[in-house]
Simulated assay, not measured.
Amino acid sequence: MNHDGFELGLDDINNAGVYSVTNEDIGPLSAAMRDAGLRVTTIDLHGCNDKRTLIARVAAQLDFPQTFGGNWDALLDCLRDLSWQKANGYALFFSDADGLQENAEKDFDTFLDILEDASKSWSKDDVPFWAFVALNS
């Protein structure tokens, strides 16, 4: 991968979606996303081995509203909205996701589906929503 968008075509909203990367990719890729004018957030998933911890970390890092329900549906709703973090587009980086994938595979897969659904929802409004999940295994 190269530094200028990792050959993802940052200028094409149709390329936005969910991607697997390594922890080493996060620094240069987040720089490319910032250069593209996107709001970048990194969420550390180290030690995150279950749904409850995952949802709590995402909610805390993205400063979800106090009314956040703390379940999958509420997570998707908030990721589709983000009105409290106005931006031209979003790039979310989830570092150290191996523990979640290994210890809660079903929850990990559900989380990826939610990220993909959120990205598709944003694309309808011509807003790029990228999610990068770092796996080292």
Results as ranks from 00 to 15, higher is better:
G99C: 06
D81M: 07
Q101L: 15
C78F: 11
L38A: 09
H46E: 13
D12R: 10
Y90L: 00
N23T: 09
L75T: 10
T22S: 11
N136W: 11
Q61W: 12
G99M: 09
D4E: 10
P28I: 13
A31L: 01
A31E: 10
I43W: 02
C48Y: 12
A59S: 13
L135P: 00
D4I: 04
V127S: 04
N103Q: 11
Y90I: 01
K51R: 14
E7R: 13
L29A: 15
A60T: 09
N2P: 03
D25G: 05
S123T: 11
L92P: 09
Y90N: 03
N15A: 13
F132T: 01
L92E: 12
V127P: 04
D81I: 08
K120I: 11
M1N: 08
N2T: 07
S20A: 00
G27E: 15
F111G: 01
L38R: 15
V58R: 10
G47R: 15
K51H: 12
L112F: 10
C48K: 09
L54D: 00
Q85D: 15
L54Q: 02
C78G: 03
P128Y: 04
E24I: 09
W72M: 06
E24S: 15
N14R: 13
T42P: 09
G89I: 01
E102Y: 12
S119Q: 02
D96G: 02
K124Y: 04
L112R: 15
T22E: 06
F108S: 02
T67D: 14
L29S: 10
D96E: 05
G9D: 07
D44G: 04
D113I: 13
A91I: 00
D12W: 09
G99L: 00
F132H: 08
Q61E: 05
H46D: 03
N136K: 07
L75N: 03
D11Q: 13
D4G: 02
R80M: 07
L115M: 01
F129V: 04
N23L: 05
D125W: 08
G5Q: 10
D44R: 14
D50M: 11
T42D: 01
C48H: 07
R80T: 06
D117H: 07
L112H: 00
Q101E: 14
G27M: 15
T41C: 14
Q66S: 12
A131D: 04
Q66K: 15
F68A: 13
A60Y: 07
R34N: 11
A134H: 03
A131Q: 04
H3L: 08
H3A: 00
S20G: 03
D98A: 04
D96M: 02
D107A: 14
L82R: 05
F111Y: 12
P65I: 05
K51Y: 08
S83V: 06
F93W: 03
R52W: 04
K51Q: 11
V21S: 00
G37M: 08
A91W: 00
D125Q: 03
P128A: 07
L62S: 14
K51F: 10
S123G: 05
L75S: 07
L29R: 12
D4M: 15
D63T: 09
K86M: 05
F64Q: 02
V21K: 00
E116T: 11
W122P: 02
D126E: 14
D77H: 14
I55L: 08
G47T: 06
I43H: 07
A104D: 13
Y90M: 02
D117E: 15
A104P: 04
P28L: 14
N71D: 14
D96A: 02
I26Y: 03
F94N: 05
